[in-house]
Structures are given as C-alpha cells and as structure tokens.
Design a protein around this nucleic acid. Structure first.
Lengths: 230, 230
DNA sequence: CGAAATTCTCGTCAGGCTGACACTACCGCG
DNA sequence: CGCGGTAGTGTCAGCCTGACGAGAATTTCG
C-alpha cells in the first residue's frame, strides 16, 4: 500500500423540475476554500460507509429527513473526480451522485444557505462543481431517453402533462402533447392508470397515473440529434 | 479535512474481440491478498496524476508501450467502488475504467501472468472485480447501441463483416448481415469507404472502411429488450 | 345561461426505419 | 466451367413517429 492517500467525498447533483425549469440544489459555502460561493452539497465518506450510503445520508440531510427513503426519487453514481489541483487543501477525490426528486414545497423557514437554482442560470461554482453539474445534467438528459425515470421527478400521482413538462424542462424542447401521450400510455408498465382525475384547473380534467414497474423505455424516446450548424 | 483517508487505485476492464468472442485482459496476482487468483489489471494513482492519466499509464504498461496512444481504441470511466470491506488491507477506493481495443497478435514471448480470457468463462476474480467486470461489459453493450464505438474494437481498416462480428460477440446475438450493412453504411460519418478490398478469402471481396467522424448513432441500433420469461 | 377558451384524449395519415428475404456480384476451388 | 461461399442491392410489409384534425369535458367570461 502506497503512502499517497486521498480524502474521499461525495458530491450531489440534486435535480428537480419546478415551474417548468430544471433546477439544482446548491449550498452557500461558509468555509474556506471558496467561502461565500455556491457549490454542490456533499460531504466526506464516514468510516465503514459505502458510497451510496454517504450519498443517501447527505441527500437526507440536505433535503429533509426521510426524503431519501421515498418511493419516488432516484439516486445513481455519475463518476469520480480526482484532478490533482481540484481542491487547494490537498488531494481530495469526489464521487458525484445524481439525485432526481419531485418538486417539493419550500420549508416553512427558508434556508438562506441552500436553495434551488435554475440550471440555466448557474455560473461560477466552487471547485470543479460546474463540470460535475454539467455531467450530471447530461446524464439526466440521456437517462430520460432510455428509461422511465422521468417519473422520479413527479409526485406519486401525476398526469401525462406533468410528465411531459418534465421532459420539456430537462431537454429544453417542446413536445407534441398528443404524440407524447400516445407514447407513454402505450408503453407497457410505464404508467398505471388510477381512475381519478385532477379537478380545479381549466380544461378537461386529466387522468392521474402512478409509476408502473417498467424501467426501460423500448423503443427509446430519442431527442433530435444536435443539429450541426454550418 | 477528516482523518478518514483512502488509498485510491484504478482498475481496468480491457475488452477486445478475438475469434468472435468478447475477451477481457486479466492478470494473475502474485501478491497477497488474493494471491494466485485472477484479477483486473490496475494500479495506484501517483502523486500529481489525474484518474485518466493513471488509466492510460496502466493500459500502456499492460498492453505494450504506445498502445494507449493509438488512434483506435477507447478509454472511459465506469464508476468508483469503495465498499468498506472490498480490500482486506484497508480502505481502498478503486475507480474503474473501460478500455476497448482491437484484437492484437500475442507478444512473441507470451506472458504467463496476464492474458485474454473469454468473458463468458470468467469466474472467481479477486476483490469485487467480478462486479466491476459485469458493470464494464454492460456499459460496453449499451455503448454499442448508441454510439459508433464498435469500431474501437477494429483495426484501422476493417470490413462491414468485421464490425458486425463485434456487435455479435459483445451482444451474443446474430444480426442479419444485409440489414446491418444497410444500417452502418447509411449512417453519415460512421464508415469512410476506402476503395480497396480484402482479397484471399472465399467469396466476393469486401470493401475496406475506416472510422468516420461520427460518434453518436442516430437512430440507435437497439438490441431486442430482454424477453421476460414466464 | 350561453359562448368562448382551455385542456385532455382519440383518430388519421404520410414518411422513415426495421426485419425478413429474394436476388445479383464476385471470389476460390475442384 | 460449375459450385459453394461471401458481399452487397432491392423489395416489401409492418411498426413507430411527427404532424395534424376533431371531439370531449371543464372553467371562465359576457
């Protein structure tokens, strides 16, 4: 065993969709380095703790107890980051995790040191967190193409339109509501219909659905490939 | 900074296709723990080294100098592994990388302590390397669906049949040669035709191609979803 | 109350892509 | 030369998607 040792932390890219915008949970740093700048929430791995345990513990601590154990929501590893100069304090390896959560009402006493920020507006994060955030967002975009995980952004019961708005916010595109509805309702195991409908809003009431057992989307729902300009 | 420090290593899942079989590079361990069992090649991260540097260095050391710098071939991170008991010597975090290489002739003096093993035959690896290998193979299978990286398994010039055999070996399926040819030759930027043909074998000579600039395959070449039995 | 606006849902249709497969082109071999 | 074998083209039906049209069910407004 070499003497070249690392501190190991976990950083979280916690995403949600609120007001039709993809948002990320950021914390205001109160310590050096990068004091008074925004960064991803995270913490160090405790003795006898595995990486997913650390991620779940930090997620619960940052978003409210019990959140990590919700039926909805999702947590997966993105990658490890260990550039020699990424932390001025010394060699720190960070394993980033991606968490997808339904939009939740703000706590009664808003926390001034952490909050949701539209991903499109984020600039100047601490450490290499801008890169980690970019990787996490790209992972989320790809995940929506091939899996049913968009429902992780939704509360336990939701409408087809709720689900469509998730795709539109994450991909920053518009999707035809009729074709989208046909796709998701005809995929076996994606949506389980309840027979209740939402009321109150304008227009015809929409049916409420629950997440089904399917995890993979087949065939995939492919975004248009990025258009090559010029 | 906490006192809970980790040794950090890089493990490699080096895959190639030889004799129509997906093979992985394994090394025979000569030290404890897991002495005299097979494991993935790897090593510790050196001071001032980033993870991809370590992976490239180890890959070059294990497969012959200069290999890591080939035009063909591919190296990407899989994930970090840090279960508390994964190494009996203490806390070791390992970042796994996936390398895809073209099949190369064996060195003149075969190395008895490292060699290619069909993935289907591998059992009982050291540490948690069986899990890492499984994750790497699954990543490779998915990558072939959505990208043009199958060509990383091929030498600089190859035929459509060579490429099809890569897909068949990695996915363990059979693909219709005519439909496969239509798909890959009609994808812009995947294959660049040379006007030379292979000679010598039976049958009509096949045209030789080079890798094109395309990286994404759109639409994807989707495997059949796993059939639910029962 | 009635009309307009809004939203959800089902239908239709053309075009693209895929799987299945007939058929032709070109090689080595006996 | 005929034959088996491999490479590549052509065809066709079926599925899926994008682009709508149109009806259903509710709220909002005059």
């Amino acid at each position: 065993m070499r003497g070249n040792l690392f501190a190991v932390g976990v950083d979280l890219v916690v995403l949600t969709v609120r007001d039709d915008e993809l948002c990320v949970l950021l914390v205001r740093r109160t310590e050096k380095p990068f004091e008074d700048t925004w960064g991803l929430p995270g913490g160090f791995v405790a003795p006898d703790e595995d990486l997913p345990d650390t991620a779940a513990r930090e997620l619960a601590a940052q978003t409210g107890a019990g959140t990590a154990g919700r039926v909805s929501g999702h947590l997966e590893q993105i990658a490890g980051y260990a550039a020699p100069d990424r932390d001025p304090r010394g060699r720190v390896l960070s394993v980033a995790f991606l968490a997808l959560l339904p939009d939740m009402p703000d706590p009664d006493q808003p926390d001034v040191v952490s909050g949701w920020h539209p991903v499109a507006d984020v600039t100047d994060l601490a450490f290499d967190h801008a890169q980690i955030l970019a990787d996490g967002v790209e992972r989320a975009r790809e995940t929506l193409e091939y899996t049913t995980l968009a429902a992780a952004f939704c509360p336990p019961e939701f409408t087809v339109t709720d689900l469509r708005r998730v795709y539109e916010a994450v991909w920053r595109t518009e999707i035809d509501p009729r074709n989208f509805s046909r796709k998701v309702t005809s995929t076996p195991g994606f949506l389980v219909p309840t027979n209740r409908h939402v009321t109150g809003g304008p227009g015809r009431p929409a049916q409420l659905f629950r997440r089904g057992p399917a995890t993979r989307l087949h065939p995939a729902m492919l975004r248009e490939p990025a258009v090559r300009v010029g």
